[in-house]
């Protein structure tokens, strides 16, 4: 009984970290632009598939592939901002939502052409069988997922709290006009946010592929659940996203284990709806700040 509980916790945390990374991706863009990028899930898919390409086709070592995939997906984020979002800077929020949905469809379609419809697998980052611990089996790759997520969150926090660029990015979100007047290049900050967000998504995609495989249409559902985590944690809140992602992952895992595995996918969304209705600023957001946001 206890070992089952442990097993559910481990698998819940592992997938929860992926949701958290997707949620953080949403937050990075949202913090700077107040755009909700519905193509966020596709970055995860692209990250995984780029890594498959580097390892499987180009025969590069895994470490190179990891960073290669992040850079390649970052370029996609760059292109998305530079050639599409920038053209629509005067569009209404309604149009912006539709534009990011259109981009997500395009990315998915392009991935289908490049990689086909079959799922792909990557070798685990470190070899060896599962680690048995208290009756539960832990895949070493799950530890990689936790580690990489923790690293990303630490780096981002430092980046936004300490570095000039990070502070400038936050300033753009609060008041783009004021930021521009103090000499912050707002357009570049927006561009940077898309690249950063794509890179985070890609990292999530690479670490999860050895566990869950990856195929072209995986992005939408991951994006949706990550979105749930972002809202639950309070839009724009990194630590909120981290906790909310973990909560969602655990809730899904426990639901599958103790209640109904069929309704597992609904758990994240029901939590999302409840959050929207009863605490729209999220578990960790402040209602004062939420009132100021466009969204």
């Amino acid at each position: 009984m206890g070992s089952d509980l442990l097993q559910y916790t481990i698998s819940g945390l592992t997938i929860g970290m992926i949701y958290a990374l997707v949620a953080i991706g949403y937050n990075v863009i949202y913090n700077v632009t107040e755009i909700l990028n519905f193509a966020q899930g596709e970055f995860v898919m692209l990250g995984g598939l780029f890594a498959v390409f580097f390892v499987g086709t180009l025969r590069l070592p895994l470490g190179v592939a990891f960073f290669g995939a992040i850079i390649a997906t970052g370029c996609v984020g760059f292109a998305m901002e530079r050639f599409i979002i920038r053209r629509a800077r005067d569009a209404s929020v309604l149009s912006l939502i539709i534009i990011t949905i259109a981009v997500s469809i395009l990315l998915k379609g392009t991935a289908m052409f490049c990689w086909g419809k079959d799922p792909y697998v990557l070798p685990a980052f470190s070899p060896g069988g599962p680690i048995l611990f208290g009756g539960a089996a832990i895949q070493p790759q799950a530890l990689w997922v936790l580690g990489v997520s923790a690293l990303i969150v630490i780096c981002l926090t430092l980046f936004f709290r300490r570095s000039v660029y990070g502070k400038a990015m936050l300033a753009c979100a609060d008041n783009p006009n004021a930021a521009r007047m103090t000499g912050i290049p707002v357009r570049q900050m927006v561009l940077l946010s898309f690249v950063l967000s794509a890179a985070i998504g890609a990292a999530a995609g690479v670490v999860i592929t050895p566990i869950s495989l990856m195929e072209y249409d995986r992005g939408a559902l991951l994006g949706l659940k990550g979105f749930g985590a972002a809202v639950l944690g309070g839009l724009g809140q990194f630590h909120g996203a981290l906790f909310a992602g973990a909560i969602l992952g655990l809730a899904e895992s426990f639901c599958a284990g103790y209640l109904s595995s069929g309704y597992k996918d609904a758990v994240a969304l029901v939590l999302l709806l409840l959050a929207l209705f009863f605490k729209p600023e999220g578990l960790f957001g402040s209602s004062e700040a939420a009132k100021l946001k466009k969204f």
Partner: peptide, 20 residues
């Protein structure tokens, strides 16, 4: 609520109906 909360709420709701 102000803004596009309906977009988010309906997104989640649509998927829930599909699951049900």
């Amino acid at each position: 609520l102000k803004g596009h909360y309906l977009a988010m709420a309906t997104l989640g709701f649509g998927v829930i109906v599909h699951i049900v």
